[in-house]
Write a protein that binds this DNA or RNA. Sequence first.
DNA 1: GTGGTCTAGACCACC
DNA 2: GTGGTCTAGACCACG
Lengths: 124, 124, 124, 124
Amino acid sequence: MILLDYRDKRPIYEQIVDKLERLIVGGGLEANYKMPSVRSLAMELSVNPNTIQRAYADLEQNGYIYTVSGRGSFVAHECEWRSGKLAELTKNLEEVLLKAKEAGMTMEETIEVVRKTFKEAGDD
Amino acid sequence: MILLDYRDKRPIYEQIVDKLERLIVGGGLEANYKMPSVRSLAMELSVNPNTIQRAYADLEQNGYIYTVSGRGSFVAHECEWRSGKLAELTKNLEEVLLKAKEAGMTMEETIEVVRKTFKEAGDD
Amino acid sequence: MILLDYRDKRPIYEQIVDKLERLIVGGGLEANYKMPSVRSLAMELSVNPNTIQRAYADLEQNGYIYTVSGRGSFVAHECEWRSGKLAELTKNLEEVLLKAKEAGMTMEETIEVVRKTFKEAGDD
Amino acid sequence: MILLDYRDKRPIYEQIVDKLERLIVGGGLEANYKMPSVRSLAMELSVNPNTIQRAYADLEQNGYIYTVSGRGSFVAHECEWRSGKLAELTKNLEEVLLKAKEAGMTMEETIEVVRKTFKEAGDD
DNA sequence: GTGGTCTAGACCACC
DNA sequence: GTGGTCTAGACCACG
């Protein structure tokens, strides 16, 4: 289930993209699984269909789903997005690390945060 | 000096805040150093004074500078922002790490990225 | 409704913040109540929309309301601002009390003022 | 001695007024004591003479000092300002108390703050 | 000259 | 329609 947070500063469509991306990446949705239709998901979340359309467009753009005209949207194969996703994450990580370093965090402190975070997340 | 990127999606004032914050945090500016005046920085960057004012207001709000009406703005003592900044950075880091973990990165891979990033950054 | 006092030395946006804060704190507005839009309140008070925006930004910064771009601003839950507000008030009170003590008011006289003020205010 | 806080948001002249007022009210300066000249106090505090002039004008306006052209300024008799000062303080106190009441503080809690503040101040 | 406030009017993204 | 950002230009208090 997708829960929207209306107090989140990010636009709704971005939250939806984020949630669906996590579902796909996390293995919650298998390859070729049929996504709910734009209209049905819009009804379910009580948002404007345009918003869902925009979210699906973003997901397709980044290779997470593919759309067949008149049939619907489907989850893409892992190979379609795997490498791109890892590159993006590594880039994000590097950015945050550089900021941390600039602010005076040492490599040891940082690695400690990594260990703690992975440990606490466990089998989240 | 500060370079603005007009292709950047972020608002101009946010880019300015970011740049100045890095200068202060990175130690490029000492405590009580006098910041350029709102008007002069606006001229230098070819933006409206209101935009600089907004940036300075943000910096003051977060404790990086203090402002004296009629005299100018000055960088604050480190103790004013140190703890808040570290907490913010740790939070950012944890968020990115959780996403990385969800996408299948292992702790070892992640720590390797940390080592590599700190090494390459050197004494940037 | 809100009445502006143009003879007041304080800036307009501050008067607006003050009035709205009292409405929220005093219980006149429930959590998640939708605030008037920036433009409509600007019309109603005959001030520039930027002035209202500034007031709303202050209220959001202090946790009294939350804003969703494209949807409007809403009053926050009490827990968002309760503790901060009480701390602020206690600080204000202490400052005034110290001045009163310096000027020669005794504790008994001061407590008498408190009793009188609370009594007269009644269930205002 | 007067110490100026350049990080204080209030204008300099107001800080000076405040400090001198406390000195007079607190009994640090006796009636008819000769205040330092505008120019000498300006030198001592390293501020513009206009600033001191403005401060002295405010003090005279509120009855704390009186000025004899060509001879200087002198501390007024207590009877000149006593009642006005008490009225002002009581008004300030009532304002803060009303805000506290609006925010939900009870009379008992408020009186407790009064007791605590007077106790801690002791013979400050 | 400095920051603080306000107005008028504009464009943008989102819904 | 909503808020978010930006510009241009104005006036004020302060030092």
